[in-house]
């Protein structure tokens, strides 16, 4: 019968339609009603751009819930975030009692140990999620107890402190570094340098130094002559005859050495010579001759210093030195 067919069709239509409606309502959210949830809340002092109601909350990467409310505290201008956490994601093997209390027990312990929440980017889309984890930079935060006193009373909800997101952290570090950098007084340093160089050139152009240099030159030549003589004497085994001369020479050298080591220590030559050379290159172009002198002087000074050190510690080494070729015998 036609009517029967029609009624059958309408019946199928209505029944499957209603079932579909129920199924969709169930899957699209009514199922949430039957899922037990606990609430966490936190405050972010930074912007939460990219975070929405429904954004994920992850505990060490596991999606355990979602953001259920976003608002701004009027007084502190902080962003107040309520998260719905599903305790069913926390498996309970050893602990007794119901899931919720077990969860909060664990949770309180975790916060004591430094569990914090932080905004993280979810992919490249600019969307964010809240990550619950241990972070290196915990930052300063109000204690849970203080927060509970100051802020909204949320019965059953627990407070988790937030830390600044890594992006925020990075920019903070960068800006403080820049600040420190800008506090360096480059101008003063430059002035100081200039003044030192001026004094340097003064010292170098001092006649006393000049004469000292000349005398050192002389002494060096004299020493050279002496050593060659010594060698010759040693070679010719006329040691005893030359002892007096040597004794005299030695005296002069000792004197010179003391004088020189005084000068050199005063000038802190080993540390400063490189800087001086550079400064002289730049600043004392007018006295080009000094440059060449200086290089010689340098070399001389180095050998003299070595010699004086040597002689200063053991003047008789000159004699031993004489003996050194004698070892050949």
């Amino acid at each position: 019968m036609n009517e029967r067919e029609q009624n059958l069709r309408i019946g199928i239509f209505a029944v499957t339609g209603l079932l579909l409606i129920l199924a969709m309502l169930f899957f699209f959210g009514l199922s949430d009603i039957f899922v037990k949830k606990v609430q966490l809340f936190t405050y972010f002092s930074e912007s939460v751009q990219g975070l929405n109601v429904g954004s994920q909350v992850k505990y060490r990467g596991v999606p355990v819930g979602s953001v259920s409310q976003l608002s701004i505290e009027m007084d502190s201008k902080k962003v107040f975030v309520i998260m719905d956490i599903e305790p069913r994601y926390f498996r309970n093997i050893t602990r007794s009692g119901d899931q919720e209390t077990a969860f909060f027990k664990m949770f309180e312990g975790e916060i004591q140990n430094g569990l914090r929440c932080r905004l993280e980017f979810a992919g490249i889309t600019g969307m964010k999620f809240i990550d619950l984890d241990y972070f290196a930079s915990t930052g300063k935060h109000a204690s849970a107890a203080a927060v509970r006193q100051t802020y909204a009373k949320l019965p059953g909800a627990h407070y988790i402190p937030s830390v600044q997101s890594s992006i925020k952290d990075l920019s903070g570090t960068l800006s403080s570094a820049l600040e420190r950098f800008s506090s360096i007084r480059f101008e003063d340093i430059a002035h100081e340098l200039e003044r030192s160089l001026g004094r340097m050139s003064e010292i170098l152009s001092d006649p006393a130094i000049r004469s000292a240099i000349n005398r050192i030159n002389d002494a060096a030549e004299h020493l050279e002559v002496s050593t060659s003589t010594v060698t010759r004497v040693l070679d010719e085994k006329r040691l005893t005859r030359l002892l007096d001369t040597l004794e005299k020479d030695l005296e002069v050298i000792k004197q010179l050495g003391e004088q020189l080591s005084g000068i050199t220590t005063e000038m802190k030559l080993p540390e400063s010579t490189a800087a001086f050379r550079k400064a002289l290159d730049d600043l004392l172009e007018s006295r080009e001759d000094i440059t060449s002198t200086l290089s010689k002087f340098n070399q001389t000074l180095e050998s003299i210093r070595m010699l004086t050190d040597y002689l200063g510690t053991d003047p008789s080494s000159v004699i031993k030195g004489k003996q050194a070729p004698g070892q050949k015998k």
């Binding site: 969709m24 309502l25 899957f27 699209f28 959210g29 009514l30 199922s31 429904g54």
Partner: peptide, 10 residues
């Protein structure tokens, strides 16, 4: 699908 769609939209 069931995560992003809510019953209100439906």
């Amino acid at each position: 699908t069931i995560a992003v769609l809510d019953q209100m939209t439906f």
